[in-house]
Write a protein that binds this DNA or RNA. Structure first.
Lengths: 210, 210
DNA sequence: TAGATTGTTAATCGATTAACAATC
DNA sequence: TAGATTGTTAATCGATTAACAATC
């Protein structure tokens, strides 16, 4: 019913709503949210209707109420805890990424095979990879991030599955197959940049072509 | 003609092809590439046909040739240089991200308002934000990455536009409007994780619902 | 009531998939 | 020739958009 695009838009609406709330606004119209997420007002209302969210005809939506409803849909009624496997550049950055807090996302531990990186005392501890299974089970963690080199991505996935992880974001530039019982999203930074390069070069060509 | 999804898939095919080449393979079938990018073989051939890439009926595709053709489409005939504005967690990680090398992507400088972060001697120098315009112009940089807090994202975009940047990846969780003459892709890590959370919770509900 | 906005149904658009023709 | 794979055209599917009805 709701597709991936729709959920991404809900996240964006929520981000905008939090900002509006901080500015003490009370009401919002679909047109405002459309501006913030770079879509049309119809799209906003359609997205809401998929989840039975309704406003006041003529009066728009109450910001507080909308935030509560979208937050519930996105699973923000509780803090969602993640582990990270692979404490390289990206893993290290995500370990203390400040932006997660307002999204009720918490990184609770990192794991790496390199013992020079281990640090049990840190606020977010970095532990030996062997401890992943126990830690995940003991702390009932459901989400994981893979930020290992691509050669290690597949086996990291296996470890996470064995540990009982149910949702994974994979930064390695290798497309992991989505297994039964686990959601996997492949996001490669190289690929994102290549996308921008392609469409930029294309736009330039079109311009000079005219 | 070619949509965003298609270009992302081309990147993935290319990644897989590089790996196959490293293993000394010579030929590849659309079925193989389909496996690597988690799509169907028809999708692969359709993508290729959009760009006039053809193989040998019965004989598949020559890996070397395919890499060359896809690389040309993705703008890899020359190294594409990026600047990063905002040397926080993410910016710092991207500055030295090893995965960019094989994609012919080079980060040439970082910029920040915090002078404690400045370092002209580093391999990838970190410079005061005021120098962005000059640097970009002098070095003919066309691509930029925004990794500043969301409150600063909009003005960073303006600075980049003035400097002449033509393609931008924005990590701030605020949706920047795509201006004339510049490609902007908004990628927020919070949003990506929220997406995974939603679909994981959904899958769990469906399972227990049965 | 008139005007503005929401909410829904139907139409359109674009991307994926199926079917099949071409050919090595 | 028979079999396997590519390449293309047509059909399907799903998401977005347009049109309009509902109502505050």
């Amino acid at each position: 019913m709701a597709n991936k695009g729709c959920i991404i838009r809900l996240s964006r609406y929520r981000n905008a709503l939090l900002r509006l709330k901080a500015l003490n606004f009370v009401k919002v119209f679909s047109e405002n949210l459309a501006d913030s997420a770079r879509v049309t007002a119809v799209q906003v209302r359609k997205d809401f209707s998929l989840f039975g969210i309704s406003g006041n005809r003529r009066g728009g939506y109450l910001i507080e109420e909308l935030i509560a409803k979208i937050s519930a849909i996105l699973g923000k009624d509780e803090v969602q805890r993640f582990v990270i496997v692979g404490i390289g550049n990206i893993g290290q950055a995500l370990l203390h990424y400040p932006g997660f807090k307002k999204s009720e996302i918490e990184i609770v531990a990192g794991f790496d095979i390199d013992q020079n990186k281990h640090n049990r005392q840190a606020a977010v501890p970095i532990l030996p990879l062997e401890e992943l299974g126990n830690f995940v089970e003991k702390n009932k963690i459901r989400f994981g991030i893979i930020s290992v080199p691509d050669s290690a991505a597949q086996e990291t996935l296996q470890l996470m599955l064995q540990a009982g992880i149910k949702g994974i974001l994979n930064f390695a530039p290798i497309c992991l197959k989505e297994p039964q019982n686990c959601v996997v999203r492949n996001l490669s930074l190289e690929t994102e940049l290549e996308n921008i390069i392609y469409f930029t070069v294309l736009a330039e060509k079109e311009e000079t072509g005219k």
